[in-house]
Design a binder for these strands. Structure first.
Lengths: 289, 289
DNA sequence: ATTCTTCGCACCTAGGTGATAACT
DNA sequence: GCAGTTATCACCTAGGTGCGAAGA
């Protein structure tokens, strides 16, 4: 594998996988002029997760009446893995060929058909539909960091004219890109695979001075969300680690400050629980307007 | 320092500090028969945080247009530390003598005066007042894990009789103790010191089968919250690390399933924003009752 | 005039309160 | 009856929606 992106279509999604290149060198464009996959280059540190795993599975289980650390996982703690003894180093290798399944794919497609729009505001706005994914093929014992970012899909500026999106010139300069690290990171493959990974708290903004860590986008530009799986037990190791990246073309969208296409507005109202007040049906006030 | 607790009164609070003992050995009671300070014994790993700190302060700062990882801190990212160059190993040692200041101490004292009660429910209940603390004296560059637990304050069962709390026998057996790890853990000393550390999401329950990781308590028993600072960059290192523990006697409380003392009820209503509906003053419905 | 952005708003979801009555 | 627990409720906080008028 060289230092550049290797796109490979894998049925469900487009996957890019590579090891970081040399620090500061711009890597080949994943989509367009924008950010490389990993923030800093350098050598990767593969399989660094083993040395930190305690031999006793201690922190998650009661042992001799000692306290347990249990609040890291939102749901019920994983079952006790002790019955199946840990293989020694050199034993059977654990699986590590991640696959990702996009949740609510059909809903994403309904939006995509009309051209998905996402509102961006100064105070930050969530995406709808929310980006949710189901992972398989992770090493159950290894620890992973899962992240998302949003990159330019092309170098155009758009306008909505005569009920159509049209190219309206060259893109404005891109904002510094930010990685949204899933708040459960780092966690074991077992933990990630046990539930849907939800990125709904990621927020989009057009405020170039944003101090919350939100993703800063240009209005009337087209974007592509990306999902990354990194085998690493510590955030600090991220820049030196291998990213496995997954792109779903149906999650592409145009950032707007106000919806342009009425069909998109209606899909949002019909499907986002927080917009229930605008529905025609039911108890909403919509009928009176 | 030996393996047992060394209580030392430090003006504001009672501090215990020790290194873990041998695995499985019950340590001297911090308050009563209950849990030792650290879950698993063994050798400690002091100062392990240095080797993981990247030389470039990379993950938090934009370098040559690379993306930054910024969503780990809720507030604004810390200022760029680059101007003050990092001292080489062997240079001036950073401060590491943590002090803790309990927030809303006066409110805690008002409750304590009447005998603080905390409701416990099957579905989990927060504490009020919330446990919040301000830390100083941390090594700004080192990484820490901050935690809380709640331990028995004595071995008595209580009853509320004639408007007084009275001992009503020997304590029931204690539930397995759980450590509540602050969700921002691990984070740098700089990050912890930059804001009040809020443990308001810790929940108390009387459900011995609880699967959420809440703190399980016995009703009509007296408890003491404890706050712990651990210099460690990874949750997995917790069992082998040194705990510095801080106890504030005014945060002691009795767990109840329904309030016993009307004075406590009124203090809760007057001060907890979520109970505003029960206040006599203002827009509340209380006047009509 | 046109296009795009901002702000306050009514209307929701989600969930934290003590009161109350029923239950054990 | 008594003492303690549970479930349900009205009433809040906190914050995510698109709307529509006003602003740039």
């Amino acid at each position: 594998m060289d230092n550049f992106l290797e796109p490979c279509i894998s049925g469900d999604f487009t996957q890019y996988s590579r090891t970081s290149g040399v620090a500061g060198v711009r890597l080949g464009p994943p989509l367009f002029p924008t950010a490389p996959l990993t923030p800093l280059g350098s050598f990767s540190v593969p399989g660094a997760q083993g040395s930190l795993t305690l031999g006793h599975d201690a922190p998650r289980h009661h042992r001799r009446g000692a306290p347990a650390f249990v609040n890291r996982a939102a749901g019920p703690p994983p079952e006790d893995p002790r019955p199946s003894e840990r293989p020694e180093a050199g034993g059977a290798a654990e699986e590590d060929d991640p696959k990702v399944h996009l949740e609510a794919r059909e809903l994403w497609r309904q939006f995509h058909k009309y051209g998905t729009e996402m509102v961006i505001t100064k105070s930050g706005r969530r995406m709808f539909p929310p980006f949710r994914a189901r992972c398989t093929g992770l090493d159950r014992r290894a620890r992973y960091i899962l992240l998302m970012d949003v990159v330019a899909a092309d170098d155009c500026r758009y306008k909505f004219h005569n009920c159509r999106w049209m190219v309206a010139g060259k893109a404005d300069p891109e904002m510094p890109k930010r990685m949204y690290i899933h708040p459960d990171s780092p966690a074991t493959g077992e933990q990630w695979m046990s539930k849907v990974v939800n990125f709904n708290k990621l927020k989009l903004t057009n405020n170039i001075s944003d101090k919350h860590g939100f993703t800063i986008l240009n209005s009337m530009h087209k974007y592509q969300p990306r999902f990354h799986i990194v085998k690493a037990n510590d955030i600090l190791k991220l820049p030196y680690s291998t990213f496995k990246s997954f792109l779903f073309s149906e999650t592409e969208f145009i950032a707007v400050t106000a919806y342009q296409n009425d069909k998109i507005t209606q899909l949002k109202i019909d499907n986002n629980p927080f917009a229930k007040g605008f529905r025609d049906t039911g108890n909403g006030r919509r009928e009176k307007r």
